[in-house]
């Protein structure tokens, strides 16, 4: 007996529609999320909102200190993590022999990339805040964040470096260049757009992260702007957490508005990454 092709085709059609439906559903959830945020938060958005400090009174509250904190924190985090992340990736791709020790190191990096962010928070709390006595400052925050995004930066940079064709290296070596000259003069410039793309995406993770900063003691009520890296601070996600965990509906509205600002910042960063990728990236894996 032949199985009816018709019945099998019907099952197939149902399956295709199911897969399509689930995919559409995921897109729909994203739309729903954005729609909900706009409905909750949009009417709180104003220039004053960007320009006021947090307050007990919802109508007077703003995200000035959080915006500046986020800016400070990203800047410092970038300064720490960018060179070190690239350097690690360069060593792994250009110098490291293919042996057990280095596959262990690479495995360790992948595992670190998946370590819960809250564990980084405890690390920062014990090492930077307490042991080095950096207190609840931007130093502590940015160093913790640097450790958090380092594995992602290394992994992305490694891929960008690996995409640089060997012919380029051989050509440079054939001109009598030393390894460091090949790397600094040829490999790094060729891989830089790819590295930058990965770096911006890692940074956007740092901008959205809040758990480790709460651990090290970033506050959700900061009524001043940090003047130096040793000042206490708050950032947008922590401010959002502070407002969202209050029972008051109006503070939920403020949280929604702050989320819209945060998402706008992240969107701009991602746009930057896409532009770098499209305009400058020559080599891709």
């Amino acid at each position: 007996m032949l199985k009816s092709v018709k019945a099998r085709k019907r099952r197939d059609k149902i399956f295709v529609w199911l897969c399509r439906g689930v995919t559409l559903m995921a897109l729909f959830v994203l739309a729903l999320l954005l729609f909900h945020l706009i409905r909750e938060g949009a009417h709180w958005l104003s220039l004053d909102f960007l320009n006021q400090f947090p307050s007990r009174f919802p109508s007077k509250a703003g995200i000035k200190s959080a915006l500046f904190g986020t800016l400070w924190l990203s800047l410092l985090t970038a300064i720490f993590s960018f060179p070190i992340g690239i350097a690690s990736a360069l060593y792994l791709e250009e110098y490291a022999p293919k042996n057990r020790l280095f596959s262990l190191i690479e495995m360790n990096i992948s595992n670190l990339a998946g370590m819960p962010s809250i564990v980084y928070g405890l690390l920062g709390l014990t090492v930077f805040v307490r042991f080095f006595g950096l207190e609840q400052s931007l130093w502590s925050g940015s160093l913790t964040m640097s450790l958090l995004i380092m594995p992602t930066i290394i992994i992305a940079s490694k891929e960008a470096i690996r995409a640089v064709p060997d012919s380029l290296r051989l050509a440079a070596f054939a001109l009598g260049a030393k390894p460091w000259q090949v790397i600094v003069g040829q490999v790094l410039p060729a891989a830089l757009p790819g590295i930058l793309t990965g770096f911006i995406l890692s940074m956007s993770r740092a901008v959205g992260e809040s758990a480790p900063l709460i651990m090290i003691g970033a506050l959700s009520y900061v009524a001043f702007l940090p003047q130096s890296p040793s000042d206490p601070f708050t950032v947008l996600p922590v401010q959002i957490f502070g407002w969202a965990s209050r029972p008051n509906e109006e503070f939920h509205g403020l949280a929604g508005a702050a989320i819209l600002v945060l998402l706008a910042v992240l969107f701009l960063m991602n746009l930057g990454a896409v532009i770098v990728r499209q305009r400058f990236q020559r080599y891709r894996l």
């Binding site: 999320l33 909900h36 957490f241 969202a244 949280a255």
Partner: peptide, 14 residues
């Protein structure tokens, strides 16, 4: 890419 705190907010308020 959406921060986790945003998901928390979404869970709580929606």
């Amino acid at each position: 890419g959406i921060p986790t705190v945003v998901y928390g907010y979404f869970a709580l308020t929606f």
